[in-house]
Each structure stands twice: as structure tokens, then as C-alpha cells.
């Protein structure tokens, strides 16, 4: 079966990639100038033994303990992860909800009011750095209008502004990708064929072009998820949410290496898995070509 081999190959690559990342992360305490391994620590054990111990630990999900709080790194990560994941997914959801309809509309009605509004939105938001967007939202909606609260992470209302801060930025980028991809597909010859079949114009063009136009969008989303995760770092800091991003930031500030390493592996793992899923989705939706 062709699909099975494809999946197996992709899964194999995924595992290899994670292995490489874990190995690289192993070297972090030795490379960074202020790393604890620079000095004397388990220095009697030879390199590959330490590496072996490290690998075994990772495989058992044992990433060591934080020298500051004494807690297990894996516990810390698993406690903070749901918030970050939720934030990232919701942020992506908001980005799609804004960018997809607007992008498609922009492409179908070029040079209309919608199109110009979308372009202005894109350029403005893309010019703003993430933390500035977050602070602006806080200023307008929390301080001035007093609709949303400033800080906290128990009530759903607390998450509206952070999700917006994260999502708007990505919506701006995604909008341009959707629009460009849709315009390109709408110009293709198979659209001419579809029109020549006498099917009602706008709907047909949209329907035919959409599936093909979404392929680069999925690719872009896959890549953006990485920066979504990174962006959540900033947003968590601005809105004081105790997610994975905040954990990593404070670990960096405090030179808590086990936590840094654990988070690095975790982020890499998430990103690789999402890329894998995006690849599968792409293979499923995309055009199937003849295997000669």
C-alpha cells in the first residue's frame, strides 16, 4: 500500500529528527558559557556514559529535577503545557477564523473595500511586535474600556486578550498567504474549464480553487505553529499566564538548566509532531499524481 509506506517513511523521519534534537539538547549545558557542566560535575563518568544516562532518562520521560524548586522537570512541564497548548490552538483558531474568510473574499473581490481593509489590517498588525500588540490590547480593553481583566488565569475571560494578541498577528500573515494562494488558483486554467461547463460563476470558481489554494495555506500554518508556540512566550509574559513559555523564560533567567533542556525537547517534539500531521493532511487533500 502506497499510503502505508508514505506514513512509515514520514514516521521514521520524525523519530530520527527527535533523536537528533535530543542529542543536541544534551550538549547545551556543555556549550553555553554559564552552563553547569562547564565546571566539575560527574566529571569522572566518561562522555558517552553521561550521554547514555541522559538518553535513557529521556526515553523514560525523566528529565531530571530543577535545582531551584526541587520538582521533577517533567511535572513542571506537564503542569504548564496545557495552558500554552490551549493558547496556541485558540490563537491559531482565531487566526484562521479571521484570515480564511477575509483572504478568500479579498481574492474573489479584488480591489474592493474588503480587499483594501484586509491589506491595511495585514500591514498594520505585521508591523507591530508581539508584545506591543499585547500591551495595546491591554491598554484599550482592560485599562480604558475595562471590558477584560488585566491578569489572572482561572476565568475564561482572562484568556480573551492573550488569545487575540497571539491570533491577530498570525491572522495578518495568514491573510496574505490565503489571498495570494487563492488569487493564483483562480487564475488557473481548470477554472476556465469549470466556467465553460456553465456552472454558476462565483461559487464554482471558489469551490474549485479552494481545495488547491488551501494546500500552501496548510504548509504555512504548519510553519506558523512553531512561531505561535514562541509567540506564546511573549504573550504569557505580558499577561502573566503561567504557561510553558513563562516557565522557559524564568528558567533562562535563573539558569535552571534541566528545565531549559526539558522545555527545549518538549517544544521540538510538539513542533515535529505538528509538522508530521500537516504533512499527512497535505498528502491526503492534495492532488494525487500518477506513479510511473
Amino acid at each position: 500500500m502506497g499510503t502505508f509506506h508514505l506514513l512509515a517513511r514520514k514516521a521514521g523521519r520524525l523519530i530520527l529528527l527527535i533523536f537528533v534534537v535530543v542529542t543536541l539538547v544534551f550538549f547545551v549545558p556543555y556549550i553555553i558559557p554559564e552552563g553547569p557542566a562547564r565546571g566539575v560535575r560527574n566529571s569522572d563518568a566518561p562522555a558517552f556514559v553521561r550521554y547514555g544516562q541522559w538518553m535513557l532518562g529521556v526515553l523514560r520521560f525523566d528529565l531530571g529535577r530543577s535545582p531551584l524548586s526541587g520538582e521533577k522537570v517533567s511535572t513542571l512541564i506537564l503542569r504548564s503545557f496545557p495552558l500554552t497548548l490551549g493558547l496556541s490552538l485558540l490563537g491559531m483558531g482565531v487566526a484562521c477564523l479571521i484570515a480564511l474568510p477575509l483572504g478568500i473574499l479579498s481574492a474573489l473581490r479584488r480591489r474592493s473595500l474588503w480587499d483594501y481593509a484586509g491589506i491595511i489590517f495585514s500591514w498594520t498588525v505585521m508591523a507591530l511586535p508581539g508584545f506591543l500588540l499585547g500591551l495595546l490590547l491591554l491598554l484599550v480593553f482592560a485599562a480604558l474600556l475595562e471590558i477584560f481583566p488585566f491578569f489572572g488565569d482561572d476565568a475564561p475571560l482572562h484568556f480573551v486578550l492573550p488569545v487575540l494578541a497571539l491570533g491577530l498577528g498570525h491572522a495578518a500573515v495568514l491573510l496574505r498567504v490565503v489571498r495570494a494562494s487563492m488569487i493564483e488558483e483562480l487564475g488557473r486554467q481548470y477554472i476556465t474549464m469549470a466556467v465553460s461547463k456553465g456552472l454558476p460563476d462565483k461559487m464554482t470558481r471558489c469551490r474549485h480553487a479552494l481545495r488547491n489554494a488551501l494546500l500552501p495555506v496548510i504548509g504555512s500554518l504548519g510553519m506558523q505553529f512553531g512561531s505561535l508556540l514562541g509567540g506564546s512566550l511573549i504573550v504569557e509574559q505580558v499577561f502573566s499566564l503561567s504557561g510553558l513559555g513563562r516557565l522557559v523564560l524564568s528558567a533562562v533567567h535563573q539558569r535552571d538548566f534541566p528545565v531549559i533542556q526539558g522545555c527545549l525537547i518538549f517544544f521540538a517534539l510538539m513542533f515535529c509532531c505538528l509538522d508530521f500531521l500537516a504533512g499527512i493532511l497535505y498528502a491526503h487533500i492534495g492532488p494525487r499524481t500518477r506513479v510511473r
Binding site: Y190, T192, M193, H208, R211, L215, I285
Partner: peptide, 10 residues
Amino acid sequence: ESAKYLNPSM
């Protein structure tokens, strides 16, 4: 050109 005039993913 049939390849270009047929929707590849339908």
C-alpha cells in the same frame, strides 16, 4: 492541455 484544464485535486 488536459493536465492544466482539469482540477488536479477533484
